[in-house]
């Protein structure tokens, strides 16, 4: 018992330190290096050079915060979906939920931009949420027909392809000016975050996180299987609806700002689970969030700097680190079934 507790504490410390360190690195490293002293000086209000200050306040800081918040939200969404479907390879990207959100956001952007209307954050999040729910609806319909874990994922991937195809179509017909914008975004990126964006995404994600955390107890029972959860007095229907809504809000929020980012929602929960050595939602929910943040901060750091000054799509980096995790999970599960 004490062993386990020690492991939990060490895990959280590890995740916390990693997150903090990566935040600092993300702010310091870039085409213009900013030293730690400069950061501290700027944060405490003392004067540093104008360029540095602008890079720090207008570019690096919001981007780092966005990676922290959205990465965490993405991992949490993945964890909720894995719990919901009792499927270890579920995630917002794999099940086509990100692509669904991407499609509606692209449609909204092209439609509104074409009429020279300024697209507000709220409209984007709303559109993304709607798209996420549409995809989720399809996946839910499929899940009633197919009980097989792999088939569910395949149908999710197919839905993802359909949505992506529609998105591509929309982009093809969009105005030139929009294309660059949309193209970057549809590949997934944390670039171009404003403080307004950060404020809204933080509010949405924090609200969803709190709500999910309050559901930790029924989630724990739900993990045992629905029959046992029902016997323990859990309102299954309500819980399922809440799970769908919150995972869609989280996925939608991320897509609205950073586009579809692959593998974070899939890989981060597994890595965190192995670290903690438990699946208790009470611990997994905050740990997942931190884990997703660490994963995204790390990947964004690489995405920005590996081929600087050019930037790699964030999904490229997350796939490199995330896909092996999926393979590992599948191998691991097979081995367990044999023994």
């Amino acid at each position: 018992m004490t062993d386990k507790r020690a492991r939990y504490i060490v895990s959280f410390l590890f995740l916390g330190i990693c997150a903090a360190a990566l935040c600092v690195l993300n702010i310091c490293i870039g085409s213009v290096e900013i030293s730690l002293q400069d950061i501290l000086a700027s944060l405490s209000g003392r004067a540093v050079s104008r360029t540095q200050s602008r890079i720090l306040w207008d570019i690096r800081l919001p981007r780092t915060l966005a990676a922290f918040v959205l990465g965490g939200g993405l991992a949490l969404a993945g964890y909720l979906l894995q719990t919901f479907f009792h499927n270890p390879i579920a995630g917002p990207f794999v099940l086509g939920i990100s692509s669904g959100a991407k499609m509606t956001v692209a449609l909204t952007m092209v439609f509104l931009m074409g009429r020279a209307v300024r697209v507000s954050s709220a409209a984007l999040i709303g559109a993304a949420f709607l798209g996420a729910m549409i995809s989720m609806g399809f996946v839910l319909l499929m899940s009633r027909k197919v009980s097989n874990m792999a088939m569910l994922v395949v149908s999710g991937v197919m839905i993802g392809y359909i949505c992506s195809a529609i998105t591509e179509l929309v982009i093809t017909f969009a105005e030139d000016a929009d294309i660059v914008n949309l193209h970057n975004w549809s590949r997934g990126s944390f670039s171009g975050m404003t403080w307004d964006n950060v404020a809204v995404m933080t509010a949405v994600t924090a609200a969803a996180f709190t709500a999910v955390f309050l559901l930790a107890k029924p989630l724990g029972a739900y993990q045992l299987g629905e029959a046992y959860a029902r016997n323990l007095g859990v309102n299954i229907l309500l819980l399922r609806v809440l799970l769908v809504v919150f995972s869609s809000i989280l996925s939608g929020c991320i897509v609205a700002y950073a586009g579809p980012i692959s593998f974070v929602g899939l890989a981060a929960p597994h890595l965190v689970k192995s670290l903690l050595g438990t699946t208790k939602p009470l611990l997994m929910i905050p740990a997942c969030f931190l884990g997703g943040s660490v994963f995204c901060l790390f990947c964004d750091l690489l995405a920005r700097n590996l081929l600087a000054p050019a930037e790699i799509g964030i999904s490229t980096v997350t796939a490199v680190f995330g896909a092996p995790v999926v393979l590992w999970v599948m191998l691991h599960r097979n081995r367990e079934r044999i023994s």
Partner: peptide
Amino acid sequence: VLLTEKLRTEL
């Protein structure tokens, strides 16, 4: 209850 459905657990 104790059902024939397997209890799903992980770790």
